[in-house]
């Protein structure tokens, strides 16, 4: 793990993404100490103020400080994406290793299920499911996780399939290791690098989906701030308050970019044979 970190820091791009992510995590963890104002405090005397020294990113329709709201929003985004990616990796590893190790009919069924899930445009599927549930932060985490595991499942399946005939697996079996022990102790660790890459890319995608859902009004509900739902106000005040749309969008772009580039760098570092840009 430490070597991996060292390798990452050597890369210019990997290092930059790590710094961005680190800043974001610090902001999220220490939001109450770092944000200059209370993100929920309504102030009727300071409605829609442009950026100034007092409010670096301006204020919104209810006179709340945009910078403070955005710092708190980073908490929500990281929380949602971490849990969602955790769920999707859990499902992906479970189904992928079952399909890869057992093969045969189990593999057929799981592979077909993956193909079917891939036919649904993610956003349509998520919208349909959310329509039946109360929009809440927990709902979004689960729904994003439950609709984005297919890539990981395929990765793990392929990796395990290619390894299960190797001698070290045979030896483990001769020594009496059970199916689950073989999968978790001997096979999965080999599948970890690609899973790590797709987790990093997945974090970025989860943040994109969460903010899109919040923007559409079915994600994180106000007054809880999210980059997506600050943009709702931004769209309404397009003509008069540019700061309400520009800053939250930039935050999403930079964050997603950081996770994506980290994923790319990880891939390069973990698998130097393959040419990746």
């Amino acid at each position: 793990m430490r070597e991996l970190l060292k390798e990452l820091i050597k890369h210019k791009i990997g290092c930059a993404s790590l710094i961005v992510i680190f800043i974001l995590v610090v902001l999220a963890l220490f939001a109450p100490y770092l944000s200059p104002y209370d993100p929920f405090e309504i102030n009727v005397n300071e409605i829609l103020l442009p950026p100034s020294l007092k409010h670096p990113l301006g204020t919104d329709l209810l006179g709340r400080d945009v910078l403070s709201r955005m710092i708190y929003a980073s908490r929500i985004s990281l929380e949602v994406s971490l849990v969602a990616v955790g769920i999707s990796i859990g499902i992906g590893i479970f189904l992928g290793s079952l399909a890869g190790y057992l093969g045969g009919i189990v593999d057929q069924i799981i592979s077909r299920f993956i193909d079917i899930m891939l036919c649904f445009p993610t956003i349509f599927l998520i919208l349909a499911v959310i329509a039946y549930l109360e929009p809440s932060i927990l709902t979004i985490m689960i729904v994003i996780g439950a609709t984005s595991w297919m890539g990981v499942a395929r990765l793990v399946r392929a990796e395990i399939m290619s390894l299960k005939e190797r001698d070290f697996v045979l030896i483990a079996r001769v020594y009496g290791a059970g199916t689950f022990r073989i999968i978790f102790r001997h096979l999965l660790p080999n599948a970890l690098p690609p899973v790590l890459v797709s987790a990093s890319l997945g974090l970025g995608q989860a943040i994109l989906i969460e903010s899109a859902l919040s923007f559409l009004g079915i994600g994180v509900q106000p007054p809880i701030p999210s980059w997506g739902n600050i943009l709702i106000e931004g769209k309404e005040t397009l003509e008069i308050a540019w700061w309400l749309s520009v800053f939250p969008g930039l935050a999403i772009l930079i964050t997603v970019l950081a996770f994506t580039l980290l994923g790319e760098t990880l891939q390069e570092v973990l698998n130097p044979k393959r040419e990746i840009r």
């Binding site: 970025g204 994109l208 903010s211 899109a212 923007f215 559409l216 997506g228 943009l231 931004g234 769209k235 397009l238 749309s245 520009v246 939250p248 969008g249 999403i252 772009l253 997603v256 970019l257 994506t260």
Partner: peptide, 12 residues
């Protein structure tokens, strides 16, 4: 392109 939130691009 990968990282751009499309709704934000639309608003801009």
């Amino acid at each position: 392109g990968y990282a751009m939130p499309s709704f934000w691009l639309a608003i801009i």
